[in-house]
């Protein structure tokens, strides 16, 4: 029983980071209709920026939670402005291709600059683990686990509320729902797109801050995060932030359960099995949103 509790908690920790990355992908996709394949690269850069701040510059860890999202958000908005906006004149497919190459470029630039295998970032919080008695056994919970799970979930929920209830979120949802209608309300496509990329980038950056201690910084991080975040987003319906949040947590827990009770090889396969099952059962994802355009 204690083991099962630990497995679930471990899965939630992974899942919370997936969820954060997935929410970023969904925000960008919802508002701009662009599937951002560079998102993993942004998460990796978030983790890298954390490394620079915390390890190289020896700033206190909490500053990373403030600086990194702003930095990666600005970078994402800058990439949208300088690279993707000109491509958008061609068509959406070109933009999506653009993000694929952008993602590769981010990873490879990092690989060129940092030839070492892996940059390690210490945990944001450390201390003796907590033992929770369950029956005759004890479940062990580390402070870092609580911090990462709780922190990432809190940020994800804050993102949800922001998107749902703030003026900024309303402008992105309007743009997502009907681009002409949104423009006729007075929303500038450019400005809303930049805002969406900033928000998505900031969430990616935060996912990087949370992921850095447990995953380390390496180009591999970009690849593994983008794969998991995509699966999470698709499970959730791809256009629902709540769906991405639940999808991320579900994926993390299912992955960890299969690692614990099947095998570590099953862990990497299970995410795609989960994806297929969800798509077979509910092709529109667990949390579909209204898709009709013309009313």
């Amino acid at each position: 029983m204690a083991e099962f509790v630990m497995v679930i908690l471990g899965g939630l920790k992974f899942g919370a980071v997936y969820a954060l990355a997935a929410i970023g992908i969904v925000v960008i996709h919802k508002a701009t209709r662009t599937v951002n394949f560079a998102h993993g690269g942004l998460v990796m850069l978030g983790a890298f920026a954390t490394y620079v701040l915390v390890v190289d510059w020896k700033w206190p860890y909490w500053t990373a939670y403030l600086v990194v999202p702003l930095l990666i958000g600005a970078l994402a908005a800058g990439l949208e402005l300088s690279i993707l906006r000109p491509l958008r004149r061609a068509d959406l497919f070109t933009v999506v291709l653009g993000t694929i190459f952008l993602g590769t470029a981010l990873s490879e630039a990092f690989r060129l600059a940092y030839n070492t295998e892996l940059l390690a970032v210490p945990a944001a919080i450390s201390g003796a683990p907590i033992f929770i008695d369950i029956g005759e056994d004890a479940a062990i919970v580390t402070l870092e686990q609580i911090w990462v799970t709780g922190g990432a979930l809190a940020v994800g929920l804050a993102g949800l509320f922001l998107f749902r209830y703030s003026t900024l979120g309303r402008s992105m949802r309007a743009m997502a729902s009907n681009i002409r209608g949104a423009q006729l309300c007075g929303y500038s496509v450019e400005r809303v797109y930049a805002t969406a990329w900033f928000t998505g980038g900031a969430l990616a950056g935060l996912a990087g801050v949370f992921a850095a201690p447990s995953r380390g910084v390496s180009p591999e991080l970009a690849v593994s995060i983008i794969a998991s975040a995509f699966v999470a987003a698709v499970i959730g319906g791809f256009d629902s932030l709540a769906g991405a949040l639940i999808g991320g947590l579900l994926l993390g827990v299912v992955e960890t359960l299969s690692a614990a009770y099947v095998s570590s090889a099953a862990k990497s396969a299970i995410s795609f099995v989960l994806l297929f099952l969800v798509l077979l059962w509910r092709p529109e994802g667990l949390f579909p949103e209204a898709k009709r355009r013309h009313v």
């Binding site: 949802r173 309007a174 729902s177 009907n178 002409r180 209608g181 006729l184 309300c185 929303y187 009313v295």
Partner: peptide
């Protein structure tokens, strides 16, 4: 200069109030 377009171009998942709020809270 406001246009009421032919296909109305509403936001189906917005409530009536949200739709009007979206227009009234846009930068201006």
């Amino acid at each position: 200069l406001a246009l009421v377009p032919q296909w109305r171009e509403l936001f189906p998942a917005f409530t009536v109030e949200e739709t009007l709020l979206a227009a009234s809270s846009a930068p201006r």
